[in-house]
């Protein structure tokens, strides 16, 4: 797909895709939306599919995201879980924001969970980090940094013994 072609090409920008709020739980394997192309009470689901489905798929690359249209009298979202159960979410006469809000609450990861995971992922990935579970044990392993005082004595002007000594 060429970048600036078609309806609302902003949907294909990385900023827009990253701005999606719905990160599904690990247990969710299939995310399906049923909606009709006509009808006022389907407009929320329709807009969800148009504006947010790309974000959902981008944020959840391991989830199958399907949109089924013109097969139902009343729009709904259905999430299938790992263990074979599923959750049916009615989205009749709801607008896009309400639907997303509710989905985040019901099948999405919570804010705390996301933050914690981001933190963990960052500490794992970032080569600048040091300490337990990182590439290096201590910053003193980097050439040019101050060596650990347990191994090499610090310069006197950094030692409390000299800083706080009575003149």
């Amino acid at each position: 797909m060429p970048f600036m072609k078609g309806r609302a090409p902003i949907r294909r920008t990385i900023e827009y895709l990253n701005a999606g709020r719905l990160v599904l739980k690990d247990k969710v394997k299939i995310f399906s939306v049923n909606y009709n192309t006509h009808g006022d009470h389907h407009s929320g689901a329709r807009e969800l599919v148009f504006w947010n489905l790309c974000q959902i798929q981008y944020k959840n690359p391991n989830v199958q995201v399907v949109a089924l249209k013109n097969m139902t009298p009343s729009p709904f979202v259905r999430c299938y879980f790992e263990d074979g159960r599923d959750m049916l979410i009615d989205v009749d006469s709801r607008n896009r924001e309400e639907i997303i809000e509710h989905l985040c609450k019901v099948v999405g990861k919570t804010k705390a969970q996301l933050d914690a995971e981001a933190h963990l992922a960052e500490s794992k990935d970032n080569p600048a980090n040091f300490g337990y579970g990182c590439d290096r044990h201590c910053i003193c392993e980097i050439p040019g940094q101050v060596p650990c005082p347990g191994i090499v004595k610090l310069p006197d002007h950094l030692r409390g013994k000299f800083i706080f000594a009575p003149k």
Partner: peptide
């Protein structure tokens, strides 16, 4: 989550 969704569905069912 199921209960929350159930409540949401009930509300929508009434409105529908």
């Amino acid at each position: 989550c199921m209960q929350e969704n159930e409540a949401w569905n009930q509300k929508i069912a009434v409105e529908r």
